[in-house]
Amino acid sequence: MRVNITVNGILYQREIPCDTMLLDFVRQCGFMSVKRGCDTGNCGLCTVWVEDVPVLSCSYPAARADGKRVTTLEGVQEEAESLGRCMARQGAEQCGYCSPGFIMAVLAMARELDNPTDEEIAHYLEGNLCRCTGYASQMRAIRAWMKERRGEGEP
């Protein structure tokens, strides 16, 4: 089938098999930040936004995204840069494989929640698994980043 999907501001008009998932579609478009970590929708690695809403691209049919606007980490590099830096300062990326999905979830959270508490942050990000870090460094990074955004931290 033919789809028109705008990924990171670029319109991709492609002929695709009907069972293509959005994950494979965006990778075929060259957006390699989007990773597959499981087959069951449990890990959050493949998180992208469809019309600014974070979803699991591994379980989102590309066909359903026809006519819609999809955002991957490649499309929010500027917004993500300071968060990435805060993560690096903590060593919170470790192997880095879950980082893109995690960052997309954190950025979505920042748009959705106002000054979230630690508990709210942890709950919002529950669906992003990480096997390397034990999550504590990610939490430190988020706190530092939010402080920075409020103009309280070091740039």
Partner: peptide, 11 residues
């Protein structure tokens, strides 16, 4: 910070 942190966090 890790040498590859920039690349990894940029995806």
């Amino acid at each position: 910070p890790k040498l590859d942190s920039g690349a990894l966090t940029a995806g």
